[in-house]
Amino acid sequence: MPLFGYARVSTTDQDLALQIEALKAAGCEKVRSEKRSGTTTKGREELRTLLDFLRAGDTLVVTRLDRLARSMGDLQDIVRELKGKGVALKALEQPIDTGTSAGKAFLDMLGVFAEFETNLRRERQMEGIAKAKKSGVYTGGKRQLDHDRIRELRASGMGPSEIAAAVGCSRVHVYRVLHAGAA
């Protein structure tokens, strides 16, 4: 039964090395890896490539279930797809065996907890943003320049330095707007 590994971290500054090493030590012939959020399967090309490649009798191996999915819906979709192809799922750090009733129940419980953890993190993040907004620390995204106003000021005879001071940006930005408008 061929073993194929999948490793994932959420951000580019996180390291995949420990997961890849564990998957290879477990006997995985190939390991696909990517640095993408696990909250959705959209945009996870390495996962899609691996799921399309797997055949009956293969085993998909992950270090932990949350490396595969952080949403219960996505996890269930992946498990259904694997089951439909006759592919087993194994998690190295958790007793997952999709071939038994107990293993399936444990898989579902872990999926619920992974989704719960993601929702808690999102709630804490929203609370932190609300608190920062209330104290005036968080002001949102970057302010957009009013290109029409810059062009009007230039048409009225103002120079780039004066325009920059009037709209609160650098001369470089003024030149970019004026150049873009001329093109």
Rank of each mutant, 00 (worst) to 15 (best):
S101E: 08
A7Y: 01
K83S: 15
T39V: 14
P95K: 10
K24S: 15
V62C: 11
R80F: 12
A26N: 00
D66C: 02
V9S: 09
E81F: 12
A25V: 09
A56F: 00
T98R: 01
T59I: 04
G38R: 03
A105Q: 11
I20N: 00
G86K: 06
K104F: 15
D97V: 06
E46A: 10
E45Y: 14
P95N: 11
T59A: 08
D77F: 10
A25N: 05
K42T: 13
K42R: 15
L51N: 00
G86C: 07
L68G: 09
G57I: 15
I96Q: 03
S101R: 12
T12D: 14
A7I: 02
A88E: 11
A102K: 14
D58P: 06
F53N: 11
A7M: 01
G43P: 00
A69I: 01
D74K: 04
I78K: 00
D58V: 06
A88D: 10
R80S: 14
A56W: 05
E45A: 14
R67E: 01
L60A: 07
E46P: 05
L18Y: 07
L54K: 04
M72S: 11
T49K: 15
L50V: 02
R67S: 09
L110A: 09
E46K: 03
A69P: 02
K35I: 08
A17F: 07
G57D: 09
V79W: 06
T40P: 01
V87C: 01
S33E: 11
L75D: 07
P95M: 15
R8T: 05
V31C: 03
R8F: 04
K35T: 03
L92N: 04
K90P: 05
D74I: 08
E45H: 14
V79Q: 10
T98M: 09
G43K: 04
R36Q: 12
T63G: 10
T49I: 13
T98H: 07
S101P: 12
E34Q: 08
V9I: 07
K83N: 13
V61Y: 01
C28N: 00
T12E: 14
D58N: 15
L65T: 06
F106C: 15
R8W: 02
E45Q: 15
K90E: 08
G38W: 03
R48E: 15
Q14I: 07
K35Q: 13
K30E: 15
L75T: 08
D66R: 02
L23K: 03
L50K: 05
A102Q: 15
K24R: 14
R70K: 04
S10W: 12
L68Y: 02
L68D: 06
C28G: 01
G103M: 07
G99L: 06
V62I: 08
R36S: 12
F53I: 00
E93D: 14
T39A: 12
